Simulated scan of single mutants.
Amino acid sequence: MTKKQTELSEELREAVFEAARAGAAEAYTQNTGYVNYFKAMETLLYNYKKLAALVADEEAYCEVEYHAGRKTFSTTPQAKGFIQRKTEAEIVEEMREEKQKQFKETKSGFDSLTRAISLFEGHKEFVVIRLYYFGEDINGNPREGGTATWEEITEELSDAGILKEIKTARRWRNKIVNDMAVCVFGIPAAVSAATYRKAVDK
Rank of each mutant, 00 (worst) to 15 (best):
I176N: 00
A169S: 10
C183E: 14
W150M: 13
Y61S: 08
K104V: 09
I91C: 06
N47E: 11
K164F: 01
F110W: 07
E156A: 14
A15T: 14
A169F: 02
N47R: 10
A194R: 15
E10V: 11
A20D: 08
V35E: 07
F17V: 08
I176S: 02
T168V: 07
T114D: 09
T147Y: 02
N31L: 10
A89W: 00
Y46W: 12
S192R: 11
T106Y: 02
K99N: 08
T29D: 06
F110M: 08
E90P: 03
V55C: 06
L45I: 07
A169E: 01
G145I: 05
L51V: 05
Y132H: 13
W172A: 06
L131M: 07
A25S: 07
F126Y: 15
G135F: 00
G109S: 10
V184N: 01
A68F: 07
T106R: 06
K104C: 00
Y132C: 01
G186D: 10
T76E: 12
R96G: 05
N174R: 13
F103W: 01
N139V: 01
K39F: 02
A40Y: 01
P142M: 06
A160H: 04
M1Q: 04
K80A: 13
A19R: 08
E98N: 11
G186H: 09
K50T: 12
F185M: 08
A27E: 10
G33Y: 02
F17R: 15
S158E: 12
D111R: 05
K71D: 10
N139Q: 12
E156C: 07
V182H: 05
K50W: 03
V200P: 02
N31D: 07
A190T: 04
I91Q: 02
G69A: 09
S118F: 00
E165V: 10
R85D: 06
T87R: 08
D111T: 15
P77E: 13
E156W: 02
F17K: 15
K3W: 03
G146I: 05
D159A: 14
G146T: 05
T32Y: 09
V35M: 07
E136Y: 03
G69N: 08
M95D: 11
F185G: 09
F17A: 14
I91V: 12
P188T: 14
V127S: 04
K49L: 04
W150Q: 03
A40V: 00
P77K: 11
G135P: 04
G145N: 07
G81C: 08
R171F: 00
Q84L: 07
Q102H: 11
R130L: 10
V177R: 05
K39E: 09
E58Q: 14
V182Q: 06
G109V: 04
E14N: 13
A116H: 01
Q78W: 02
G161F: 10
R143A: 13
E90L: 08
G145H: 05
V177F: 04
F185I: 11
M95H: 02
I83K: 06
E136Q: 14
S108N: 08
E7V: 09
E88G: 04
